[in-house]
C-alpha cells in the first residue's frame, strides 16, 4: 500500500472545471496537498506498525540493542495466548469496558433527554457538564487519588456522610474489591458528557412532526418514548459506544495514574500490562506480539460493530 496512494494521487482528475487554468495543474496541486500527510502517516504510523509485526517474531530486547536477534516464529503469540495473567488482564479490561459503557450510556442518555426539555439555562449547564471530558486525564487522574484518600479525601468524606460509615474505614484505590470501581467511577465522571452530547444531537435531530403524528394517533408518552425516541437515537448512541469502546480499550493515562494497575493486578488493563512488558521488563519482541494482538482485536471488533451500526442506520 505504501506507494500506491501517492501514485494514484498523480492521476487525479479535475472534478467540475474544464476551464483553462494557469499555474499548476489540478493533478499537481492534489498531489502536493495530499502527499505530505500520507508520507508523515506512513513514517510515523505504518512504518512502526510493520516494524512491530517484524519484531513480534523475534526475541529482541531493546535494553540489549547489541544482542543477536533471533527469529522465533510464532512462539511469542503462542506464549501470550496461553498466559493466564494476560487472560486476567483481558478480564479486567472487559469488566472496565462493560461497566463504563453501560453507566455512561444510561446516565448520558438520561442527561441528554433531560436537557432536551430545553429548560432555561440548559445551554449554560450543558457547557459546565462537558468540562471534565476535555481535561488532561493524567492530571485529573492524579488528583482523584487525593479525593479517594481515606479520611481526608473529599470522595470518602461525602460517601461516609451519606451512608453514615466512617470515612477512614474504606480505601477506594487500595482495596482489591473497590479499586476496579474506583477507575469506573472516574472514567464515568469524565466521559459521560461525551455520550450525552452525541445523544443530545440525536434527540434534536428527531423532527417534531413525528411526535405530533403520534399525538394524533393517541399514542401514550410511554409508547412514544419506546417507539420513536429510542429507535431514532439508537444510531447516535451506537456511535458514542463505538468511540468510547475504542478509547476505553486503549485506556492508559487515567488508570495508570489512579491505581497504576494495582492493587496486585486488579486494575491492570491491557495497555498498562503492555507497557509493563515493553518498558519495564523490556521484552520487546513479546510486547510487540501483544501489541499486534491488541490492534487486531480492536480493529476486528470495531469492523464488526460498524457493520451492525450501518444496519441499524439503514433500517
Amino acid at each position: 500500500m505504501s506507494s500506491s496512494p501517492v501514485d494514484s494521487v498523480t492521476k487525479v482528475m479535475p472534478q467540475r472545471f474544464n476551464r483553462r487554468l494557469r499555474g499548476l495543474s489540478d493533478r499537481a496541486i492534489a498531489w502536493i496537498f495530499i502527499a505530505p500527510t500520507i508520507l508523515l502517516l506512513l513514517a510515523i504510523n505504518i512504518f512502526p506498525l510493520i516494524w512491530t509485526i517484524r519484531l513480534s517474531f523475534t526475541n529482541y530486547r531493546s535494553n540489549r540493542p547489541n544482542a543477536d536477534i533471533e527469529f522465533i516464529g510464532l512462539r511469542n503469540y503462542e506464549r501470550i495466548l496461553t498466559d493466564s495473567d494476560i487472560w486476567q488482564t483481558m478480564q479486567a479490561t472487559a469488566h472496565f469496558l462493560c461497566w463504563t459503557l453501560m453507566l455512561q450510556v444510561v446516565i448520558g442518555f438520561a442527561l441528554a433527554w433531560l436537557i432536551n426539555s430545553r429548560f432555561r439555562g440548559s445551554n449554560f449547564w450543558t457547557t459546565i457538564i462537558v468540562l471534565p471530558m476535555m481535561l488532561s486525564p493524567a492530571v485529573v487522574g492524579n488528583f482523584w487519588t487525593f479525593l479517594y484518600q481515606p479520611q481526608i479525601g473529599l470522595f470518602n468524606y461525602i460517601i461516609a456522610f451519606l451512608t453514615g460509615t466512617d470515612p477512614s474505614s474504606f480505601t477506594m484505590i487500595g482495596d482489591v474489591d473497590l479499586a476496579p470501581w474506583a477507575i469506573i467511577i472516574v472514567d464515568t465522571w469524565m466521559w459521560t458528557p461525551f455520550v450525552m452530547l452525541i445523544c443530545l444531537a440525536g434527540l434534536r435531530a428527531i423532527p417534531d412532526y413525528i411526535y405530533e403524528a403520534a399525538e394524533c394517533d393517541r399514542a401514550s408518552k410511554w409508547r412514544q418514548f419506546w417507539t420513536i425516541t429510542i429507535p431514532m437515537v439508537l444510531p447516535f448512541l451506537m456511535l458514542a459506544v463505538l468511540f468510547r469502546g475504542i478509547e476505553n480499550f486503549k485506556m492508559f493515562d487515567l488508570v495508570v495514574l489512579l491505581t497504576g494497575g494495582g492493587p496486585g493486578s486488579t486494575t491492570e488493563l491491557t495497555s498498562i500490562n503492555l507497557k509493563r512488558e515493553a518498558f519495564e521488563k523490556w521484552r520487546t519482541g513479546y510486547a510487540s506480539a501483544y501489541a499486534v494482538i491488541l490492534f487486531v482485536t480492536i480493529f476486528g471488533l470495531a469492523s464488526i460493530y460498524v457493520k451492525a451500526l450501518n444496519q441499524v442506520k439503514d433500517r
Binding site: 504510523n45 516494524w51 519484531l55 492508559f252 501489541a291 480492536i298
Partner: peptide, 14 residues
C-alpha cells in the same frame, strides 16, 4: 485505533 503504547515500542526504537 492503535493503542499509543503499541506504537510507542517501534517509535521509541526509531
Amino acid at each position: 485505533m492503535m493503542p499509543p503504547i503499541a506504537v510507542a515500542i517501534p517509535i521509541f526504537l526509531m
